[in-house]
């Protein structure tokens, strides 16, 4: 069951060459799973980086980001099936 819980609802991709490191996505992200990275990109910006887990796929960071394609948010598509599967014996999934 632990495995099922790890399936995040969302995924996040940052184009580090387009990101200008303004930090608005860091501020906007409700579960606070974005941070500014330590490394500088080609233009000298500390760009946004996904912490790796916890994305809900809400898309707020995308709307807050001023660059057209710096952030791409993805949502899980086979979640219905996952939920179905986890319904077999887990109530924790209700919170997912």
């Amino acid at each position: 069951m632990a495995y099922v819980e790890k399936q995040d609802r969302g995924q996040l991709r940052v184009d580090v060459e387009e990101c200008k490191g303004c930090g608005l996505c860091v501020e906007a992200c409700p579960p606070k799973v974005i941070a500014l990275g330590e490394r500088l990109n080609h233009y000298g910006y500390r760009t946004a980086a996904y912490k790796g887990t916890g994305c809900t796929g809400c898309g707020i960071c995308f709307m807050a980001c001023p660059e057209p394609g710096a952030i791409t948010v993805m949502r899980i598509v086979n979640r219905a099936r996952s939920v179905e599967q986890c319904m077999v014996g887990a109530s924790e999934c209700a919170s997912n």
Partner: peptide, 19 residues
């Protein structure tokens, strides 16, 4: 079971086609 549980993702918020 585990193979079915591997999540698939699709883009929900990406760069607009109008750009």
């Amino acid at each position: 079971m585990s193979s079915e549980m591997i999540a698939e993702y699709e883009v929900s918020h990406g760069k607009a086609k109008a750009f």
